[in-house]
Computed example of a mutant assay.
Amino acid sequence: MPATSPAIEDYLKTVYAHTEWQPDPITPKVLADKLGVAPSSVTEMVKKMAANGLISHVPYGPLRLTDAGRARALAVVRRHRLIETWLVAEMGYEWHEVHDEAEVLEHSLSDRLLEAIDARLGRPTRDPHGDAIPSASGEVASEPFLLLSEAVTGHAARVIRISDRDPDVLRSLADCGIVPGIEVRVTDAAGDRVTLQAAGEVAELAHEVAAAIWVTA
């Protein structure tokens, strides 16, 4: 199986994304759950990826990208996030609609078209959900962050990123005006809800929704 196959790209992207916003490496079981495949399929694929020098793995241990695997993962992530940004900016998509489209297109766009999209969009550094878009050379912008669900009362911050896992959450947050880049201040972090001020409005978020929002530390 060539190192550039769509299947390998999906694996690499998932391994990379797992540790992008938290420090724990991914295990084969978690990888199988995220990809919706059988553990035996992950075992076979990991062997192929290790043989291609893309991943390091010891039996029953976590998975880690090699330098070559990380470079390839960043290239796929760059494609995915540029496509999402393009779909929202120029194709009329809402931010909760782009993930599945990008999953398909990321494997088929030529490098020439991707470069043209990047240039037309003005070389964006973050996608509609706030995830960093790696540069063509593999550089990734980052800054200290914490989950909104972990912020204390009085914490003032800028929203960095919102998970795209649940389209309903994205829609409800957009209705509240809570999007990447907006300034917020936590007014009450007690109990199972987080109350905050955003753009002059008061919003009450369930704890699980606040746990899908990353803000500056």
Score class of each variant (00 low, 15 high):
170 L>C: 05
121 L>S: 02
135 S>C: 10
29 K>D: 10
26 I>L: 07
162 I>N: 09
196 L>P: 03
200 G>I: 06
160 I>F: 09
51 A>Q: 12
165 R>K: 15
92 G>V: 08
172 S>T: 11
145 F>G: 01
90 E>A: 12
152 V>F: 10
131 D>L: 07
102 A>S: 12
29 K>W: 10
133 I>W: 01
85 T>H: 10
82 L>R: 02
12 L>W: 04
72 R>P: 05
78 R>F: 05
165 R>G: 09
10 D>Q: 13
106 E>R: 14
54 L>M: 11
7 A>T: 13
58 V>T: 13
32 A>N: 02
92 G>S: 06
103 E>C: 12
19 T>M: 10
186 V>G: 04
79 R>G: 00
171 R>A: 13
99 H>N: 11
83 I>T: 03
189 A>G: 05
32 A>T: 01
55 I>L: 15
49 M>S: 04
170 L>A: 10
156 A>I: 03
99 H>I: 07
44 E>D: 11
9 E>V: 07
60 Y>A: 00
139 E>N: 09
137 S>N: 12
126 R>E: 11
130 G>D: 07
193 R>P: 01
23 P>E: 08
93 Y>R: 14
36 G>T: 03
96 H>N: 12
101 E>M: 15
163 S>W: 00
145 F>E: 03
137 S>W: 05
160 I>W: 06
27 T>L: 05
104 V>N: 06
147 L>G: 11
125 T>K: 14
93 Y>I: 05
138 G>M: 08
27 T>N: 01
77 V>S: 07
20 E>L: 15
183 E>D: 15
178 I>A: 04
71 A>F: 01
194 V>A: 04
159 V>R: 08
96 H>R: 09
35 L>A: 04
212 A>K: 14
44 E>G: 12
56 S>L: 10
72 R>N: 09
131 D>T: 10
7 A>R: 14
97 E>G: 08
46 V>H: 01
119 A>M: 11
211 A>M: 03
119 A>H: 13
74 L>D: 00
1 M>C: 09
194 V>L: 07
198 A>R: 02
65 L>Q: 06
73 A>E: 02
55 I>V: 15
24 D>E: 14
172 S>P: 00
74 L>W: 01
16 Y>G: 00
29 K>P: 00
92 G>F: 09
39 P>E: 02
114 L>Q: 04
23 P>F: 04
178 I>D: 02
206 A>V: 06
189 A>I: 01
